Deep mutational scan, measured.
Amino acid sequence: PPDDERKKAEKAARSGNEEKAREILERLGYSEDEARELAKRLR
């Protein structure tokens, strides 16, 4: 489910793995720019 994926992205971002967070968010349908912004904010 998307919620689980989003949680994974948050966890990745918090542990400093912004790249992985961005990949997950892009898979969820965010654009590259949106995903980058979100990954930064989740950190």
Rank of each mutant, 00 (worst) to 15 (best):
L38T: 04
E32D: 06
R36L: 07
L38I: 12
L28Q: 02
K8I: 10
E19F: 10
Y30E: 00
K20S: 08
K20A: 12
G16Q: 04
R27A: 12
E10M: 14
L25N: 00
D33L: 10
L25T: 00
N17V: 03
L28R: 01
E32F: 11
A35N: 01
A9R: 03
L38S: 00
K11H: 14
G16Y: 06
R36E: 05
A9Y: 06
D33Q: 12
K20E: 12
L42R: 03
I24L: 07
R22V: 13
R14W: 09
R6I: 15
E32C: 10
R6N: 04
Y30G: 00
G16E: 03
P1F: 13
A39N: 00
E23W: 09
K7C: 13
R6Q: 08
K7N: 10
A21D: 02
L25D: 00
K20Y: 12
I24A: 03
A9P: 04
K11G: 06
A13T: 04
P1T: 15
A21S: 05
I24S: 01
G29E: 01
R6E: 07
K7D: 08
P2T: 11
A35G: 01
K8P: 04
A39I: 15
E10K: 09
K11Y: 12
A13K: 02
I24R: 02
K11T: 12
E19V: 11
E18M: 15
R22I: 13
A21W: 08
K8Q: 13
E26Q: 15
E10Q: 11
A35S: 05
R36I: 07
A35Q: 02
G29T: 00
K7F: 10
D33S: 13
E34S: 05
R27S: 11
K8R: 12
E10G: 07
L25M: 02
I24V: 02
A39Q: 01
D3R: 09
D3V: 09
L38A: 03
L25I: 01
L42F: 14
D4H: 10
D3W: 12
K7M: 13
L42K: 02
P2G: 12
R43Q: 06
G29Q: 00
A35C: 04
R41E: 04
D3K: 08
P1N: 15
R36G: 02
R27T: 06
D3N: 11
Y30Q: 00
L28F: 04
D3F: 09
S15Q: 13
G16P: 02
G16F: 07
E34N: 04
A13S: 04
A9I: 05
D33W: 09
E19M: 13
R6W: 15
A13N: 02
E5N: 07
K40Y: 11
G16D: 05
A9E: 03
G29N: 01
A39C: 14
E37T: 11
N17S: 06
L38H: 02
E34F: 05
L38N: 00
N17Q: 09
N17R: 06
R22S: 03
S15Y: 07
I24N: 01
E34D: 10
K11L: 15
E32Y: 11
L28I: 08
S15R: 12
N17G: 04
E18P: 05
E18C: 14
A21Y: 07
K11E: 15
A12M: 12
K8M: 13
R43I: 07
L28G: 01
A12I: 07
G29P: 00
E10P: 04
N17K: 06
E5M: 14
R43S: 10
N17P: 03
K20L: 15
D3I: 11
R22T: 05
E26I: 15
G29H: 01
E37C: 15
K7R: 14
K40I: 07
E23I: 11
A39R: 02
L42G: 01
A21N: 03
L42M: 15
S15F: 08
P1Y: 14
K40S: 11
A35V: 03
R43P: 01
K20D: 05
G29A: 00
I24H: 04
L42C: 07
G29K: 00
S15E: 15
R14H: 07
R22M: 10
E10L: 15
E23S: 08
L38P: 00
D3G: 11
P2D: 13
R6M: 15
A9N: 02
A21K: 01
A9F: 05
D33H: 10
D3C: 15
L25A: 00
A12E: 11
A39L: 14
R43H: 10
E23T: 08
R36F: 07
A35F: 03
R22E: 02
R27K: 13
K8S: 09
E5S: 09
I24D: 01
E32L: 08
P2E: 14
A12H: 10
L28K: 01
R41K: 11
D33R: 09
K40E: 09
R6F: 15
A39W: 03
R36V: 05
L25F: 14
A12S: 05
K20I: 10
E23K: 12
E19D: 11
S15A: 14
I24W: 05
L38G: 00
R6H: 12
D3L: 12
P2M: 14
G29L: 00
E26V: 15
K8A: 13
L38E: 06
R6S: 05
G16S: 05
L28Y: 03
A12L: 15
A13R: 02
E5A: 10
S31G: 06
E32S: 12
N17T: 03
R43G: 06
E18F: 14
N17D: 15
A35T: 03
A21L: 09
A35K: 01
G16K: 05
E34Q: 09
R27N: 08
N17A: 06
L25Q: 01
L25G: 00
K20T: 09
E18T: 09
K11W: 12
K40F: 09
K7Q: 13
I24Y: 06
E5T: 08
S15D: 13
E23G: 06
K8G: 05
G16W: 06
R14Q: 10
G29R: 00
A39G: 01
E19R: 13
